[in-house]
């Protein structure tokens, strides 16, 4: 057991896989000597050298195109897009090329690659450096979407993503980079498409993702003190989506609350609500309630950003109101 930050867990997860598999290589802006702008790749250049850990120019299309070309010819590249907002300048490569080429070629090609990216708000960076883009990625057939919420999961899900033969968008919540936890020693390998039940309660089920997970947990603690006992589920990967765990937990309480950092429209909770209404509607005891960032660009000022992204307080009051009405 060692205390590890979320950001240190990224480097540890990557290093674990680079040690066992020479075909794993890495590229991105400032990922080498600088160790990443969020310090997620510190030490990798020293251990694996500049042939496997490559700094690139500011060329997001080239970074992801190179990852795709390397993947289709047998390597397992890990590409970094510094801020997930920057997906907008290379989205063609992700959506039109990486996601579709296996299907279009009738299965002739595979794309075992991981695209890591700093995602979401909390750092007061304003509208172009704070977006939660998990819903962009989730809506594209052919992409897997992984969003860990703690250091241990970062390592295990990173390993699973690297070993997976399909393209994975691996979103790292920027507001969690500094979070710490005790992480077991030795190799950790997790499974994509497995949600985790973090807490059980009889009254309501809160389903959350990434940076919203610790907030959902804290809210559940508070709600428990007020007599509302909540289950908290960490979705962990949007694609594949562990609907069997989620639906089971919603059936158990009869209430679903989603806590989403993405802006309201077409957030993952909307899809989940539709699955729940289609498949377990008669197990619900009340309406599904989505707690999301409103449908606005994110403001920079700390006071305003705090109002926008779901807070523990907003989760608590929203759930209390819904449960008591």
């Amino acid at each position: 057991m060692a205390q590890l930050t979320f950001r240190e867990a990224i480097a540890r997860g990557i290093a674990q896989e680079m040690r066992r598999d020479d075909s794993v290589i890495m590229l991105g802006e400032d990922v080498g000597a600088a160790g990443g702008v969020f310090k997620g790749t510190v030490g990798l250049l020293d251990e694996f050298g500049p042939v496997r850990v490559r700094d690139t120019p500011i060329s997001e299309q080239a970074i992801l195109g190179a990852a795709m070309g390397a993947a289709m010819t047998g390597l397992r590249p890990i590409a970094e897009i510094m801020f997930s907002d920057f997906f907008a300048v290379c989205w063609d490569i992700v959506v039109n090329e990486i996601a579709k080429s296996r299907y279009m070629t009738n299965g002739q090609m595979t794309f075992p690659l991981v695209i890591r990216s700093g995602n979401g708000g909390g750092l007061r960076f304003g509208a172009q450096h704070s977006q939660s883009v998990e819903n962009w990625a989730m809506m594209i057939p052919g992409l897997k979407v992984v969003v860990p919420a703690n250091a241990t999961d970062v390592i295990g899900l990173m390993a699973a993503s690297i070993r997976d033969d399909d393209p994975v968008i691996f979103l790292e919540a920027k507001s969690l980079y500094a979070s710490k936890m005790d992480v077991p020693d030795g190799d950790i390998v997790d499974t994509l498409g497995s949600a985790k039940v973090l807490r059980s309660g009889a009254d309501a089920t809160i389903v959350s993702l990434g940076a919203m997970v610790p907030r959902a947990l804290a809210a559940a603690e508070e709600l428990g003190e007020n007599g509302i006992n909540c289950t908290v589920v960490d979705v962990r990967s949007l694609v594949p989506l562990d609907t069997s765990t989620i639906l089971r937990e919603v059936v158990a309480t009869g209430r679903l609350f989603t806590v989403e950092e993405n802006p309201r429209l077409c957030g993952w909770g909307g899809e989940l609500s539709s699955i729940v209404s289609e498949e377990i509607f008669y197990d619900l005891d009340g309406p599904i309630v989505r707690i999301t960032t409103p449908h606005i660009p994110l403001p920079a000022a700390d006071a305003l950003e705090d109002l926008a992204i779901p807070s523990v307080e907003r989760i608590v009051t929203t759930i209390e109101k819904a449960m008591n009405s």
Binding site: S59, Q61, G65, A67, G69, D92
Partner: peptide, 10 residues
Amino acid sequence: AHLPIACGAA
């Protein structure tokens, strides 16, 4: 799009 992808194969 394929120019960067060709770079990746190379």
